[in-house]
Amino acid sequence: MFKRLMMVALLVIAPLSAATAADQTNPYKLMDEAAQKTFDRLKNEQPQIRANPDYLRTIVDQELLPYVQVKYAGALVLGQYYKSATPAQREAYFAAFREYLKQAYGQALAMYHGQTYQIAPEQPLGDKTIVPIRVTIIDPNGRPPVRLDFQWRKNSQTGNWQAYDMIAEGVSMITTKQNEWGTLLRTKGIDGLTAQLKSISQQKITLEEKK
């Protein structure tokens, strides 16, 4: 169930391209415009997507990853294993993690069937560096609404905000991946996880038929 919630949630996290980005210092504006741009692209490019579902990787690479804190999220997933990894191991892992996100997020976007969304009203940021933004996803086919909290983090150097995690039903996506990959990290280390991520990233994206 959580895996499905995570995939549905990713439908609204794909941010804007650099040329049309919203105010990078306001995570609420980023979330709002990102959702609108993403849904528009999914709707307008269905012919290309249906002809070649792996085209979704391109959308992810162009529109999402430049505005997601990939390395920060990847380091959180590694936890204690990050500090013990060599620079070469980290570089290989982050490259594999990025390719994994292209496949995983692309597969999530393949679930698009006309969903709509509501974003919580903007709250004062103050001096906060981590801000959760509640998004409610509404399914046109009558499924119950899904309420999610996207975690946005302020870059201490640039002042810009980027998304790095999502919490559904009190469970963090980062925590879920830590639990899912924990045994592999304990037995085969970061190299074993890197190899698995490379394998997963090679899987073809498949479209979910409308139910």
Rank of each mutant, 00 (worst) to 15 (best):
M1L: 01
M1H: 02
M1A: 04
M1Q: 04
F2K: 01
K3F: 08
K3N: 01
K3V: 04
R4G: 06
R4S: 07
M6P: 08
M7V: 08
V8W: 00
A9C: 09
L10F: 03
L10Q: 01
L11S: 01
L11K: 00
V12E: 04
I13G: 07
P15F: 04
L16P: 10
L16Y: 03
L16F: 00
S17Q: 01
A18D: 12
A19F: 01
T20Y: 07
T20C: 02
T20R: 03
A21D: 15
A21S: 06
A22W: 08
D23E: 00
D23Q: 15
D23R: 00
Q24L: 04
Q24K: 14
N26E: 10
N26Q: 00
P27A: 11
P27L: 06
P27R: 00
Y28C: 09
Y28M: 03
K29V: 09
K29G: 06
L30K: 02
M31W: 07
M31F: 02
D32R: 03
D32Q: 05
D32S: 09
E33N: 14
E33K: 03
E33S: 08
A34H: 08
Q36C: 00
Q36P: 12
Q36K: 15
K37F: 04
K37C: 02
K37L: 03
K37V: 04
T38F: 13
F39K: 00
D40H: 10
L42I: 06
L42K: 01
K43V: 11
K43P: 13
N44P: 10
N44V: 02
Q46H: 12
Q46D: 15
Q46E: 08
P47E: 14
Q48A: 06
Q48Y: 15
I49V: 01
I49Y: 13
R50T: 02
A51I: 08
A51K: 00
N52H: 03
D54L: 00
D54M: 03
Y55L: 05
L56F: 08
L56Y: 01
R57A: 03
T58E: 15
T58N: 03
I59W: 00
I59Q: 15
I59L: 02
I59P: 05
V60P: 13
V60D: 14
D61G: 08
D61Y: 01
Q62W: 08
Q62D: 06
Q62H: 14
E63V: 03
L64I: 14
L65R: 06
L65C: 12
L65V: 03
L65Y: 13
P66S: 07
P66K: 01
V68E: 10
Q69V: 07
V70T: 10
V70F: 12
K71C: 01
Y72W: 06
A73K: 05
A73Y: 04
G74I: 14
G74D: 09
G74N: 13
A75T: 02
L76C: 13
L76N: 02
L76T: 03
L76H: 02
L78P: 08
Y81N: 01
Y81P: 03
K83Q: 07
S84F: 05
A85N: 15
T86I: 09
T86H: 08
A88N: 09
A88F: 12
Q89A: 04
Q89P: 10
R90W: 13
R90I: 05
E91I: 07
A92E: 01
A92D: 00
A92H: 05
A92C: 03
Y93R: 06
Y93Q: 14
Y93E: 06
F94Y: 08
A95H: 01
A96Y: 00
E99S: 08
E99T: 09
Y100Q: 00
Y100H: 08
L101W: 11
L101K: 06
K102Q: 05
Q103N: 00
Q103H: 01
A104G: 09
Y105S: 00
Y105F: 06
Y105M: 00
Y105Q: 04
Q107T: 11
A108N: 04
A108Q: 15
A108R: 13
L109S: 02
A110L: 04
M111S: 09
Y112E: 14
Y112K: 15
G114A: 12
G114D: 14
Q115N: 01
Y117Q: 10
Y117K: 14
Y117M: 07
Q118C: 02
Q118H: 11
I119G: 11
A120F: 03
A120M: 05
A120G: 10
P121V: 08
P121I: 03
L125V: 03
L125K: 15
L125E: 08
G126I: 15
G126Y: 02
D127S: 01
T129H: 06
T129N: 12
I130A: 06
V131K: 09
V131E: 09
P132K: 05
P132W: 03
I133G: 12
T136Q: 10
I137P: 00
I137D: 00
I137C: 00
I138V: 05
P140Q: 13
N141S: 14
N141A: 11
N141D: 13
P145K: 06
P145M: 09
P145H: 14
P145E: 12
V146E: 05
R147K: 02
L148I: 04
D149A: 06
D149F: 00
D149N: 08
F150Q: 01
Q151K: 15
Q151W: 11
W152I: 00
W152N: 04
R153M: 10
R153I: 05
K154W: 10
N155E: 12
S156A: 02
S156D: 12
Q157A: 09
Q157G: 06
T158F: 14
T158I: 03
T158M: 12
T158Y: 12
G159L: 12
G159N: 07
G159P: 06
Q162D: 02
I167M: 01
A168V: 05
A168R: 12
E169M: 07
G170D: 13
G170L: 15
S172N: 05
M173Q: 10
M173D: 13
I174F: 15
I174H: 02
I174T: 09
T175W: 02
K177G: 07
K177R: 10
N179G: 14
E180K: 09
E180H: 07
E180N: 05
W181S: 07
G182N: 01
G182R: 09
T183A: 03
T183P: 10
L184Y: 08
L185A: 12
L185P: 06
R186E: 02
R186Y: 01
R186V: 12
R186G: 13
G189N: 06
I190G: 11
I190W: 14
D191S: 11
D191C: 06
L193V: 07
T194D: 00
A195N: 02
L197P: 04
L197S: 03
L197K: 12
K198H: 12
S199V: 03
Q203A: 11
K204I: 08
K204V: 09
K204S: 12
K204H: 15
I205D: 12
T206H: 11
T206S: 07
E208H: 13
E208A: 04
E209P: 12
E209V: 11
E209D: 11
K210H: 14
K210L: 13
K210R: 11
K210G: 09
K210W: 13
K211T: 13
K211P: 09
